[in-house]
Structure formats: structure tokens, C-alpha cells
Amino acid sequence: MIHIEDLTKYYGQLCAVDHISLDIQKGEILGLLGPNGAGKTTTLRMLTGFLHPTLGEISVKNFTIKNDALEIKKLIGYLPESAPLYQDMLVYDYLNYVAGIRDLDDQNKTSRVRSLADQCGLKEVMHQPIGELSKGYKQRVGLAHAMMNDPEILVLDEPTSGLDPNQIVEIRQIMREIGKEKTVILSTHILSEAEATCDRIVIIDHGKIAADGDTESLRQSAGGEYRITLLIQNAPADAVKKQLSQIEGITHILPAPEPGGGDTPLLRINIMCRAGVDLRAAIYQKIKETDWVLLELHQETKSLESIFRDLTKEN
């Protein structure tokens, strides 16, 4: 569907996007993730035809951005960051204007504007100037703008920034709904959002792709170690360390006293284990040999947050 090859953008001396290549399939919800200034917005701006790439090629279906920018723009609905819309226009007038530019005829126009107002929850504000709306409503108008011609590709730059939790859930639902048939590309720096909505995550850092895959494969590839946390009653720290260090595959044992035990002292133990082996059973067996009371045992997979931090850490 979308083929990006060797995409590069320089702002003067500064390289914002550095030889990115990507293939995006139809029906994919792709999350572009990265710290501030990583090149997410620049990439999206080149994809939507707002900026010219310094180098490289973008093609959508069989159109290239160099020769058929107009055709590509017809296929893409775009919501820029923080929805910069005309402040003086009424929501209704604005949506009608966009419907006109998107070449909807008069009959379809009315029904489309109405159904979008419904879908994006804009009914109450249709006759207010956009400049007087709250940020959440502006974002919704922007979303309605992007979805106007029922585009095959929806590009959203930080669609949920500035929204309240209810609105975030609503917008995610809309994105997932659209993503069933259409291609959705969204940029964000909120990891849980990417995790909750995207089929595929591309992490960009310093203009380069640092990782690419679904959440599961990203976790696996980040691999290395995982952590098991225990909460034990009645156990001295030294003895625990000694007992558990007999198990093969444990790299670190970090016991720390836990407050709130009363007369019987509690001990919280963080155990780092080498990836690939499940050590929960072995740990349980070892503790069963003693008279300690095991209150909690749970295994943490590496969170997307830590993967992200590892990949985009400043060197």
C-alpha cells in the first residue's frame, strides 16, 4: 500500500529523517513512536505531501509523491499535531468547506457532514466558531476533517494529546474501528497508547528506525532478562539469597525489607532471570524446602516503556 524508500530530510545542516525505509500494508494500524524531535512529524509531513523529501521516494498504491502528489493527497486524510484549524469559522461551515474541497457533491455533503458530526460527537458545537472550542473538541473537528472523504489512509499526528481520558478512549475506539478496513498511521510518544491501538510499532530515534514489529516481537527482541518478584514472610535476607542462588539461571537477587508486616517481618525480593527459561517452579520448590511463607510470586515481562528507553537512550 505505502512504500517508503530511503526517505531523508535535511533542515539546513540538521538531518531530521535519516534514510528511512518502510512498507505499510493495507489495513494495518501503525504506530510511529519516538522521543521529541525524533523525526515522527517530519516523516508524516513528507508522507502527506506537505514537505518535499531531500532524498528518497514515497509511493502510495502506484502513485509517487514526486509526480502524483495530488492523487496521493486524495487518498490520505491527515490530522496535523494539535489540529490547527481556522479559528473564525463555524464548525459546520468548516466541515462543509472541507467536504467541498474533497469533491463531495451537494447531496453526499450534507449526509457525510451529519454522520461525521455524529461519529465524532460534534453535534452540540456545530454552530460555534472553532476558536472558541476546547482542545478536545478541536481535536474532534480535526478528526472529522481527516475522515471527510472516507480516506483509504488516515494519518494522525499525536491524535490524543490534550484529551481527557474519556475522549482518549473514544478516539482509540474510532481509530480501531477505522483500522479494520483502512490503513491508519499515528504518531505518539505515549507507549500505552501505541500498545493499546497499534498492530505494528515503529520506533524512531534521531531520524532512524530503531525497532519495527508488533508489541510481542518487540518485547522478545529486547529480551535479555526478565524479573520475578517475591514477597516472603519470616525469612532473613541472607538465608534467602543463599537458598535461591543455587538455582541455575538467576543473575541477581535483591532482597529488601517490606514495611507493614507487624510482628512477622516481610521481605520483598527482586530476582533477575536470564530470558528463555521459566524459573517460577524452581523458585517455588526451593522456598517449599524451608519454613518461610510465600505470599506473592509474579513474573514481569519487560515493559514497552523499558524497551523504548533502552532503544532511544542518549549515548
Partner: peptide
């Protein structure tokens, strides 16, 4: 200044 230029140019216009 507003940034609406970005929206305008990503609509199918020359």
C-alpha cells in the same frame, strides 16, 4: 502562524 497552512496543503489542492 496558525499552522492551518499544513492542513490546506495536505488537501488535494495545488
Amino acid at each position: 502562524n496558525l499552522g492551518s497552512y499544513e492542513i490546506l496543503l495536505t488537501l488535494p489542492v495545488t
